Simulated assay, not measured.
Amino acid sequence: MNKTIYAIISFGFLLIAGASPLRAQLDNAGTIIKASATEQGRQDANTLLKAYFKPIGKGFGTDLNTGWFNTAKTHSLLGFDLTVSASVARVPGSDRSFNVQKLNLKELEYIEEESTSPVTPTAFGPGESNTTMGAYYSYTNPQTGEQQRERVDFEMPAGTDVPYVPAPMVQASVGFIKGTDVTVRYVPPLDLPNDIKLDLWGVGLKHDITEWLPGGKLIPVNISLQAGYTKLNSSIAFNVDPEQGADVENNYDPSTWNGQKAALRTNAFTVNALVGKTLPFISLYGGIGYETSSLVIDTPGSYPVTVPNEDFPDQSSQPKKIKKVDNPIDISYDKNSSFRGLVGTRIKLAFFNVTASYTLSKYPVGQVGVGFSFR
């Protein structure tokens, strides 16, 4: 059974991580990293990428706060269930694009042309982008001693045109005394193809408060409180290659760019009040809750950026050169908090369960799962 569950989770994470818009768009987002040659340019690149990956910060945290329970009722003493599920958060229209002119950039600049637009997709937005940005570099002309300023343009990446943020999960719950369940989430460190790595753990509590209410034994439904915390660490390899061309000077060995990756660290916490009814073959529940999450994305490794070659400032071809920057991106999404409403059901066939739920929040989440339970 352990090997089977491990295989299911490994395959689930492989499918979702391999098809994830984040994985698909990281290479394209590398064009923004190439604008981080200066300290101010690096800050602007972080601002652009924070806006571009905004749905990850909200959607992924919402996914991790889902699926903690499939009934309002708690287990009997030492009763337990094991569930494998997948959650998908829908990105609202307001977070599928953003306006670069509203980001208060200091060094990078929107290049306005007849065919361009300052409104550009996020990673989960439309599959086309026509936003051009310019990165400006100042240097001293070695021949004249005068200060010069050059611009290197780059295109903002498109989205995937898939406005959904997915996340799989495996967890087990065990009943203890006084109507209390302890739930544990755990995925051991996995090394998946395409240099995808991840590990996850979480812990939750659910307590049936029906017996503490006046006349609780006569209440025909179960009323419970639940809280859960999840922590996810993952990394995804991607490639930002140096610009090629006869006018580009590159003095770095190709191995310099090995080890490029995006590292993600997510923390999610939720608390919920539930009411529901459990019948022999089906359970129904609903509730309200509060959730919060945070996400950090950084980019360990060395990355090539293109800058003007100040050794040849007077050539009309404006020669360029490659400069190396280390760990250019460090983005934090903090306190993505919201209230939510939720409904769900569990269909029980002997020891086999099929579960489904829907969470109504800024990022609505649908969740389905299968598992086994012994109450």
Score class of each variant (00 low, 15 high):
G371W: 02
Q318L: 09
K348R: 12
T116W: 07
D181P: 08
I331Q: 08
G202I: 08
P92D: 02
N327G: 10
T270G: 04
I223H: 12
F176W: 11
K335R: 13
N46D: 03
S87M: 05
Y137L: 10
I329F: 05
G202T: 07
F281T: 12
A7G: 09
L26C: 01
K335N: 12
T160A: 08
Y333M: 05
V162Q: 12
N336D: 14
S138P: 02
T140G: 04
E107M: 14
I177Y: 11
G289V: 06
T256V: 00
T66M: 02
A356H: 05
N46L: 04
I297K: 07
S234A: 11
V174F: 13
L48A: 01
F69E: 13
L78C: 13
P142C: 06
Y285V: 08
G341L: 08
P254Y: 01
D195N: 12
N250T: 05
E291M: 10
F352V: 13
D153R: 13
D208R: 04
V305C: 01
D314N: 15
L192D: 00
Q143P: 04
V203F: 13
D191H: 14
L274N: 10
D334V: 10
A167I: 03
V325R: 07
I209N: 01
T116S: 11
F98M: 00
V296M: 15
S138T: 15
S85H: 11
P304C: 03
T210Y: 06
V248F: 08
L284Q: 02
D326P: 11
M1S: 15
S293M: 07
D81F: 13
P193Y: 06
P364F: 05
S283H: 01
E107D: 15
D191Y: 09
N327M: 02
N2T: 15
K217V: 03
A158R: 07
K58F: 12
L103H: 01
G59L: 07
I16F: 12
M1F: 15
I329Q: 01
E243S: 15
Y358D: 02
I329M: 07
G79F: 11
R149V: 09
F238K: 02
I322C: 06
R151H: 09
P214L: 01
T183K: 11
P193M: 02
G67D: 04
H75V: 04
N194D: 15
A268M: 04
T131D: 11
N194E: 14
